[in-house]
């Protein structure tokens, strides 16, 4: 199944999803495709003003352009997602989208979609880390 991970650039969540036989929907792939798959019109990420307009599908015109531009990248992945993993309270080195307002919107859209979703907290120590991995493993194995 196609799994949306949150934060969408978390390498650990990406690895877990792949390890348990699913397809992670990841920002790394999307951004790589943007940067290497076409001419660079709008470096560094090749998000163009036209993309920002496409972000209007997810957020109105009164929403800052940076949020709409991010939604142009991640919104279509949520459209595609069949399940999701949301991790809360992550340090920004774990992976982040840079903008908390975008985080809030992404989480809302996932929940609104009513797809199978697991929400976990960032582990504070090794023991919590093991419990978290175990929960995610159970969740992923239970998906058909």
């Amino acid at each position: 199944m196609k799994i949306f991970i949150m934060p969408p650039n978390s390498l650990i969540l990406y690895d877990l999803v792949e390890r348990f036989g699913h397809q992670p929907l990841s920002v790394m792939g999307t951004l790589r495709e943007r940067v290497s798959g076409r001419e660079m019109e709008s470096p560094p990420l090749n998000v163009t003003p036209a993309d920002v307009t496409k972000g209007l599908k997810y957020a109105g015109i009164e929403v800052p352009s940076g949020i709409r531009g991010r939604m142009a990248v991640w919104g279509p992945m949520i459209d595609e997602a069949e399940a999701a993993i949301i991790m809360h309270d992550t340090p920004f080195t774990f992976g982040c989208v840079g903008c908390h307002r975008t985080n809030l919107l992404l989480m809302h859209l996932i929940r609104k979609k009513k797809i199978p979703t697991i929400e976990v907290n960032y582990p504070e120590d090794e023991e919590e880390g093991k419990i978290m991995v175990s929960k995610i493993k159970t969740f992923l194995e239970g998906l058909k």
Binding site: S42, V47, P49, S65, I67, G69, R70, V73
Partner: peptide, 12 residues
């Protein structure tokens, strides 16, 4: 700054 890359205006 914040948001320039995702607003498509960094090159400008």
């Amino acid at each position: 700054s914040c948001g320039t890359e995702y607003s498509g205006i960094q090159s400008e």
